[in-house]
Design a protein around this nucleic acid. Structure first.
Length: 352
DNA sequence: AATTCGGGGAC
DNA sequence: GTCCCAGAATT
């Protein structure tokens, strides 16, 4: 059994020798730490590496982000998923400017008042940017703790979650200055050694005291979550072109799938779509059905049937109610859902 | 306690 | 195909 002191000492030494040291967000600046932590929620490092530099280039500091239109923020987030993160990020930037005078607070509790910042994210910011003695508990950490200390519980159980938090707290190193290396070490160990499948126990600094390894339960811990039921959701996309060749897009409601992004008019029933088309002077026989596509989310299987049509009505303005007529050259300026990006790219012209 | 949020990496 | 990823907010 590894003692708390032993655990933190081994982890810090291992991180300095074998951990990751060149990720672009490994800096002291709270803004960059915060941005990376939000982007990395439920998202792997390899994916974030594509988005983080563009975001920093466009919004170099929290004031620039707070002053930007939401559409610009969502445009840079498009494709990364979980768009409430981007909407909350924008809100939180305004909170930092207006509630904290433009500077991130160092206390975990104060950080947790920011939209989209929960306990673990707040702790990570406090540890990396301010050397605060706060414990994180993300997917990597849970896996490491469940194995090293043979924690066997239902991941959906509140009490078990609480026990893991208490364990994480008990393992913190005594010195504030070691908090970045310790916190990074937990993440690095989980991501590169104590992996979900085929962990590299031979390279693990905890191997000789790992209870799961001693009990031959590495493959069984942590316990798996029950897979959520995936419901199929039929959707109908209306790809409407005007005489100038512009495509009609709508900003989606803030709540729900792809909230705040721009999408072609999207309906859950065919009759709703035909009613909408009729308002644009298009009869049912004026629409051409395209082959359906599927798009899988964690808890939904979207079954999307696109319909294409043209309107001859003169649109005096680019704006039309909730809609926006955009030429192909302008699409890149708006955040579109990934499946729509893919569809428009593949369709290239032969659709119309 | 259960559900709602995306998209992709690794296998 | 499966499982899960530097989770948080809502119901």
């Amino acid at each position: 059994m590894i003692s708390p002191t032993d655990f933190s000492r081994r982890l810090i030494a291992w991180q300095r020798q074998h951990g990751r040291h060149h990720l672009p967000w490994q800096v002291r600046e709270p803004y960059r730490v915060w941005l990376s932590e939000i982007m990395l929620q439920q998202t792997q490092v390899a994916t974030v590496l594509d988005y983080y530099p563009r975001f920093i280039a466009r919004f170099p500091d929290v004031a620039a982000l707070a002053a930007a239109p939401q559409d610009d923020v969502l445009n840079l987030w498009a494709g990364l998923g979980y768009y409430s993160r981007a909407r909350n990020l924008h809100k939180a930037a305004k909170q930092v400017v207006h509630d904290f005078g433009g500077a991130f607070p160092p206390q975990r509790q104060a950080l947790e008042t920011l939209c989209g910042v929960g306990r673990s994210t707040a702790a990570a910011i406090a540890a990396f940017a301010f050397h605060g003695r706060e414990a994180i508990l993300d997917g990597n950490v849970k896996r490491v703790l469940c194995r090293v200390f043979a924690q066997d519980g239902n991941p959906a159980d509140k009490k078990f979650e609480q026990a893991l938090w208490a364990l994480a707290e008990s393992l913190l190193p005594p010195e504030n200055e070691n908090m970045p290396a310790y916190t990074q070490g937990l993440m690095d160990l989980g991501a590169t050694v104590c992996k979900r499948s085929k962990p590299l126990c031979a390279q693990c600094p905890m191997a000789d005291g790992c209870l799961a390894k001693a009990q031959n339960r590495i493959a069984d811990l942590p316990r798996k979550k029950e897979a959520a039921e995936v419901k199929t959701l039929p959707l109908y996309w209306l790809l409407l072109r005007n005489r100038k060749g512009a495509l009609l897009l709508e900003k989606r409601p803030q709540k729900g799938i792809w909230g705040g992004l721009y999408c072609v008019p999207c309906f859950e029933s065919l009759s709703d779509m035909h009613r909408f088309a009729a308002q644009h002077g298009i009869a049912s026989d004026g629409l051409e059905e395209a082959p359906a596509l599927t798009h899988r989310l964690t808890h939904r299987l979207l079954l999307i049937t696109p319909f294409a049509g043209r309107t001859d009505r003169p649109s005096e303005s680019r704006h039309e109610g909730n809609g926006l007529w955009l030429l192909e050259s302008e699409w890149a300026d708006y955040g579109l859902p990934k499946p729509l990006q893919n569809y428009l790219r593949r369709a290239q012209g032969d659709l119309f």
